[in-house]
Each structure stands twice: as C-alpha cells, then as structure tokens.
Design a protein around this nucleic acid. Structure first.
Lengths: 145, 145
DNA sequence: TCTTATATTGAATTTCAAGTTCAATAAAGG
DNA sequence: CCTTTATTGAACTTGAAATTCAATATAAGA
C-alpha cells in the first residue's frame, strides 16, 4: 500500500512536471509511516529529528502537494492545529474527537450522508464537502475518572 | 427579545460579581443588533465605527463573557475566522456554508442528531458538542454562473 | 460626598500557526 | 558539462487571538 501511494504521487509529480527531490521523498516516507491524523507540527518534528536540514516551509508546501495529489486530506478540528489524514481509496468518514486525550475515532454513516444530501437539495445547495465532528470524552478517558 | 437578553446578561454579570461598564453595554447592544453569525473582526469594526475608543481586547473578552452567559456560541468555520452566533432558547442547529459568498444557512435535523447519539454510544463516547457543516455553493451563487 | 480597593480597559506586545520572499542550490534536459 | 528553472530553507511577514500592565473607572464603605 505504501508503494502504491508512492507510485501514485510519482505519477502526479510527473504529470505536473514537478522535479523529484530528496526532501519530498523523505516527507512522503515519513508521512506514510505516521498514524491517520498527523498535525503539521507533529510531522515536522518527526522529520526534523531524522533530517534536521528540512525546513518548515517545505513541509507545509509538500503537504499541500499531497492533498492535490489525492494522498492526504486537510482536517481542521477544534484546537486550531491543521491535521492531515491519509486518504484511503474512495472512503469518506467523519470524526469522534476526545477533547481530553485528543484521540480521533473515525466513523461512517450512510444515512447521515443521505440526509445531508436531502438538506442541501432542499436549500438549492450544491455540496462540495462536509464536516461532521462529534466532540466528547472517549471510553478510555471516562474510565480514568 | 433584545431586552430579555440584556436582562439575562445583567443577571449573569451580577451573579458573577462583574462591574457594569459602558463598554460592555455598547458591545452587547451592537452584538444584539447584528445578524446571526458575526465574526469578531466584523463586530469590532462595527463597534469601532461608532465608539472609536473601544479596543480589540475588550471585544474579545466581552464576547467570551457572552458565551459564558449563554447569549452567544462560538463557531469556527473553514476560513479561520471565529464567529459568534446568537443563542436562541433551547435550539441547536447546523450550518450550510456557501464557499463563494460566505452565506450561512442554518438547519436542524432530528434524525441526524439521533444517529450521532447512537454512533457515540456505540463507541463509548459521551458527547459534549458536535459540529456539522456542509460546504458548497448556495442557490444564489449557482444562479450567477 | 470622598476614599479606597479592585475590576476593567486598551495600547502595545506576544504568541502561534501558516504563508511568503528570495538568494542559494539542485534537478534534468540538451 | 552547461544552462534553465524548480525547489529549498532561513528569515520575515501575516493575521487572529491572547496577554500584559499602567491608567482608569466602578462600587461599596466611611
């Protein structure tokens, strides 16, 4: 799967006439090796630890490329930190966010999606994207008390 | 209704031992006279135009007080601008956001809410709040093309 | 009414994420 | 190898929001 994604990014890069650089390879490698929802800062630090030369700006720029290439998706949660999540083929999901430990659990619900379509249609809206986040306390954190 | 809200804020202020100040009166007045979803900056400029003395910091602080007092609710949409919406008794709603003209349309959907409760329950989550935003193009903007 | 303790204000500063600039560097085709 | 030009990264800028702190205003008591 990681190889597939690398290949897919490569194709995107070629199609766009981008040059292949060491930095982008590194950032892609490390991004692919992280968990589902990395914040930019988190990723940056992880990269910096192994390749201290790589700058801030490059990480930001490259993540935006990943989004363009369809490898990543930007998510903005409650805390003002931009996160990037891995895009898995065809799937869409929403998030349960624990406001105590910041755990993020994904879920899908076909019925909710359909209801959204209906609502948008009723208001003459064309949906481009949507965002459903449920904030609360996860099972583990509840157990802590 | 505006009077009610003023009274309600007053009660909150008294209960909290806050002093009554000209600035807070002004900010409340102007907040109550705005449309549903003002951004801080928008409100600040509106206030500044009439009462040039009032500072940035006071507007921020006072809006947070309104939230505490239950008069306003903070909403964070796609564009990184914090908005405050008026809280009307007991109601909860979600938003359709036009990414072209920034129009915000509110909607309520009981079924979606119920489905969310089920999802949270299934994952052992206790819901504190949630956020559903549908982004797209509104009817008016679609007509423009 | 005057005094005093302290809550509040607002200009200025700080913070923090994110974006931008631009000279230096590196990739890739000729 | 050379040349063109994309890319990089240190430093800087931006913009929203928070914080600081001296000056001011409020409210309660004398």
């Amino acid at each position: 799967m990681i190889l597939e994604k690398k290949k897919s990014f490569n194709e995107f890069a070629v199609a766009k006439g981008l040059r292949s650089t060491r930095q982008r390879d590194i950032i892609l490698d490390i991004f692919l090796s992280t968990h589902q929802h990395v914040s930019v800062e988190e990723l940056y630090l992880k990269i910096k630890a192994i390749h201290p030369g790589i700058g801030h700006a490059t990480v930001y720029r490259t993540l935006k490329l990943f989004v363009e290439a369809g490898l990543a998706r930007e998510i903005l949660l409650h805390d003002g930190q931009t996160r990037y999540e891995h895009v898995l083929a065809g799937e869409h999901h929403d998030h349960l966010v624990c406001t105590r430990c910041n755990a993020i659990i994904e879920f899908e619900n076909e019925t909710i999606e359909k209801l959204q379509d209906e609502i948008a249609f009723k208001h003459g809206f064309i949906i481009k994207s949507h965002k459903l986040e449920i904030y609360g306390q996860c099972a583990r954190c509840r157990a802590k008390n």
